[in-house]
Simulated scan of single mutants.
Amino acid sequence: MVEKVLAYIISIRNNTYQMLVHEHKDMPEAGLQVPGGTVDPGEDLVVALQREVFEESGLHDLSASELVASAPFLHPEKQELQLRHFYLIQTKQQLPGTWDHHVFGKGVDNGLVFRYTWYDFTSIPPLAASQDQFLHLVRKIIQAHPRS
């Protein structure tokens, strides 16, 4: 089983919660996704999360994270059994509304260009490979905490 970490990155923008997603600039058929990737053998999950977010988005200093859920997932295209760990990260950084990022690292995404954009949390389109399966839990976390 391959371990994966995925990041639900949210921010209060325009007085509402928004979540960061990306699409492959040259492969829109890959669908909307959240930053994430493979945990290296022996690597701490939070360290892997921070590394993957940095490699895939260029964002750093996002150390405050909360585990939302972990669950097995059979990736339909890869026929790979994954244990996916979804984390919630709330950032107060002033980030652009959209940007392109050239992915780096040793993974298969190295060299790809991801186009990032923010969506109002209430209107996030379906995410690829069931990456949205725990957004209902994020909604509960958001509702339990006042905007800060």
Rank of each mutant, 00 (worst) to 15 (best):
L62C: 13
Y119S: 01
H102C: 10
V2F: 11
M19W: 01
Y8T: 04
F104I: 07
F73Y: 15
G37S: 09
A129V: 07
A144S: 15
N110D: 11
N110T: 08
K140M: 09
A48Y: 05
L127W: 03
F54L: 12
Q143Y: 07
T117C: 10
L112T: 14
R139K: 13
L74Y: 11
V21G: 01
S148L: 11
G105L: 02
E77A: 14
F104P: 01
A144D: 09
V108H: 11
V34D: 03
T117K: 14
A48S: 14
R115L: 11
E43R: 06
E77M: 11
S65Y: 03
R115T: 15
W118S: 03
I12A: 01
S123P: 00
E80Q: 15
K106L: 09
M1A: 13
V2A: 09
V113G: 02
N14F: 09
D26G: 00
D132S: 07
R13E: 10
D26Y: 12
I9C: 03
H22A: 10
R139F: 00
V47T: 13
P126D: 07
K106P: 00
Q79W: 11
D109T: 12
L81C: 01
T98W: 04
E56V: 03
I141T: 11
A48N: 06
T98V: 10
L83S: 11
T117A: 09
E29H: 12
E52H: 05
V53R: 04
I10H: 01
L127I: 06
A129W: 02
H22Y: 15
H136V: 07
H102W: 01
D100Q: 14
V138H: 00
G107V: 03
G105T: 01
L6C: 12
Y119Q: 00
Q82M: 15
Q82T: 12
I12N: 04
M27I: 08
T38N: 09
F86S: 11
T91I: 04
Q133L: 09
L49P: 04
D109H: 15
Q18P: 04
S70K: 09
K25N: 03
Q18L: 02
T91H: 05
F104A: 02
D44S: 05
T122L: 05
Q50S: 10
F73V: 03
N110A: 13
N110E: 10
E77D: 14
Q18W: 02
